[in-house]
């Protein structure tokens, strides 16, 4: 139990408290990215009842589009990153809808494993297409979130973070956390209040009944894929701003983690994906800081297993009673 002692020690000493706060912030920031990806996963799962393994690779495509648009634009100020993210979201939305139309729609009535394998095929396809298009050499993603200031002597300083005493918070962290909260609130409003959102929930409850009520099920599923993929693009831009190493397999590990987060929170549940993502991010950073960098993934997955044993449908998942 070495790490517990280390943990308590670090909390009680002065510098440790800041460090602890820093870890929490980093955790929430990473968790926010997971949450945004997990929201896409969980919505698609809720409505199409399929594990979209290609979701992680849509993140990667989003990040690449963002990278190249930003490089091509060369505009000053905050306009360029904003446009780049918009372009990425647009491309990914289109990509998500196309994938759904071509690969998943013909399989609506097929066994769920067939859809799973097709999703894996799409994932391989995107990774290898990216490999051909953009090569395997890593791209260094630009940090969008910097503040350029000119001081009295005329020298420009590049600011990447705000200082609060000895605690420094990078802009990426702030933007990531804020966007995650905004997206979460917007989605809750969308699924709860709007007509399209209600249609979406109806489809996830019972497709046949929804169709009888005059809901266009195919359009609703397309919309879900569009939203999920758009979110994946945003997540890709945020993820690569914080961890700027972009390769064709960038999306796979965050994809798996976000999938885990979605299950952790209860798959199909939007607040569940949010909570699961945040907890997973904090857990991962804590495991890295206080236990071991190499074993952090193992710790995260072990906690997931324990949670699922205590609560077999995830933290906020609905328990469905089985009938004979």
């Amino acid at each position: 139990m070495n790490f517990i002692i280390q943990f308590v020690n670090s909390l009680t000493s002065g510098g440790g408290a800041y460090q602890f706060l820093n870890h929490i912030l980093n955790g929430i920031s990473l968790g926010s990215v997971y949450a945004i990806i997990a929201l896409g996963y969980t919505m698609v799962y809720g409505i199409a009842k399929m594990l979209n393994f290609a979701h992680g690779d849509v993140i990667m495509v989003g990040a690449y589009v963002c990278f190249y648009t930003f490089g091509a634009l060369r505009l000053p100020g905050p306009l360029a990153p904003l446009l780049a993210v918009c372009a990425a979201a647009a491309v990914c939305t289109l990509l998500g809808v196309t994938i759904e139309k071509l690969a998943y729609k013909p399989l609506r009535s097929a066994p769920s494993l067939a859809v799973l394998i097709t999703a894996i095929g799409v994932s391989y396809f995107l990774q290898n297409a990216a490999l051909l298009l953009w090569s395997s050499s890593p791209k260094v993603f630009p940090n969008f979130f910097v503040l350029r200031t000119v001081d009295a002597s005329g020298e420009t300083a590049v600011l990447r973070s705000i200082q609060f005493g000895s605690l420094s918070i990078s802009f990426v962290t702030i933007v990531t956390i804020v966007s995650c909260i905004v997206i979460m609130l917007a989605l809750t409003w969308f699924t709860g209040r709007t007509k399209m959102g209600k249609a979406m929930r109806a489809c996830s409850e019972d497709k046949a009944a929804a169709q009888l009520m005059g809901i266009d099920v195919n359009a609703t599923i397309s919309l879900t894929f569009a939203i999920g993929s758009g979110l994946a693009a945003i997540a890709g831009a945020l993820l690569c701003s914080a961890y700027p190493n972009l390769v064709p397999t960038t999306g796979s590990m965050p994809g798996i983690k976000a999938f885990t987060a979605a299950v952790f929170g209860g798959i199909g549940s939007i607040p569940g994906a949010f909570l699961g993502g945040l907890l997973l991010g904090v857990l991962e950073i804590f495991a890295k800081a206080y236990i071991s960098v190499q074993l952090s993934d193992a710790v995260v997955f072990a906690v997931l297993i324990i949670v699922l044993l205590v609560k077999p449908t995830g933290l906020l998942g609905r328990t469905i009673r089985e009938k004979v």
């Binding site: 690969a103 097929a110 067939a114 394998i117 097709t118 095929g121 799409v122 391989y124 396809f125 290898n128």
Partner: peptide, 9 residues
């Protein structure tokens, strides 16, 4: 990848 998708479809 394409073969995999086409085979499943």
């Amino acid at each position: 990848a394409v073969l995999l998708i086409v085979m499943m479809l």
